[in-house]
Amino acid sequence: MNEPEDKPPAVVEEEMRDATLREALLVAGGVTAASALAVAAAFSPERAGGPWMLGSMGLVYAALGAWAVLRLKQRGELYDQLRPAAGDLSIGAIVAGVLYGVAMAVHILVTSPPSPRVAWIMRLYLALGDPAAEGRHLVGGVVFVVAALEELVWRGLVMRVLTEPLGPIRAWLLQAFLFALAHLPTMFLLGDPAVGPNPLLVLAGFSYSLVWGRVAMRWDRLPPALFAHALFTWGAFEFPIWRP
């Protein structure tokens, strides 16, 4: 009986690449689906303005964040990716400030009165709740933590797992697209009958993910991007671009 011939090295290498790509797409797709479900639950009308509005996102991202940490540890990358360094907070604050300025400019140009599109940003902030309500600073802390977990998951897990089979540029673009896709439910949950579906979080998710992803690539560590994401989201919550 003839022994099966060994596969040529090129075939073995191609099969390994295909397996790595399948795994990466499975991880990225799973994170996107779980995130979309969490976003849909958080922004559902029955939770709008309530104290547990962010609870579903927090629980989902805590689980996904634990997965991201475990994967980094298994690959021996946990310390290198999460180690702090001087300037991390400053870099994050500068990036967050620039992004806040961009958000304010978009509001002035696109969603400020008398434009009917003001309904888009009104619905977003009404879903988050009254910024002057009692206990809102505690909620602001939750916003900061959830945003930090988002960064850990999307740049620490999704973008990194996509980089090996796709390369850094395509992984960077795809993670931004998937992050925006995860926010697609808000187009309809925060839409308005007069002006239609609300694209604000989807467009912001894509464009800002490009920035946070680039920061993570530039420093090859997560803390600068993590602070940038968390500080921006906290700032947009604590210092609302629109107030009721």
Rank of each mutant, 00 (worst) to 15 (best):
N2L: 12
E3M: 15
E3C: 04
P8V: 08
V12H: 06
A19G: 06
E23N: 13
E23W: 12
E23A: 14
L25M: 13
L25D: 01
G29F: 05
G30W: 11
G30K: 08
S35F: 15
A38E: 06
S44T: 11
E46L: 13
A48F: 09
A48D: 02
G55I: 00
M57H: 06
M57L: 14
G58K: 02
V60W: 02
V60K: 04
A62E: 03
A62F: 08
A68W: 00
R71Q: 10
R75Q: 13
R75K: 09
E77Y: 09
Y79E: 14
D80M: 11
L82W: 12
A86H: 09
G87F: 09
V95P: 00
A96I: 01
G97E: 05
S112F: 13
S115T: 14
S115V: 08
M122T: 15
M122G: 12
Y125C: 04
L126T: 14
A127C: 03
G129S: 07
P131A: 10
E134C: 00
L138I: 14
F144G: 04
V146L: 09
L152G: 02
G156F: 03
L157S: 07
M159V: 06
M159I: 05
R160P: 00
L162H: 05
L162F: 05
T163P: 01
P165C: 08
L173T: 00
L178E: 07
L178Q: 05
T186S: 12
F188D: 03
L189D: 01
G196K: 10
G196N: 11
P199I: 10
P199N: 12
L200C: 02
R214I: 07
R214P: 06
W219R: 07
W219F: 15
D220T: 01
R221E: 06
L222Y: 07
P223N: 03
P223W: 02
P223D: 04
P224E: 07
A228N: 02
L231E: 05
F232Y: 15
W234Q: 02
R243L: 13
P244C: 08
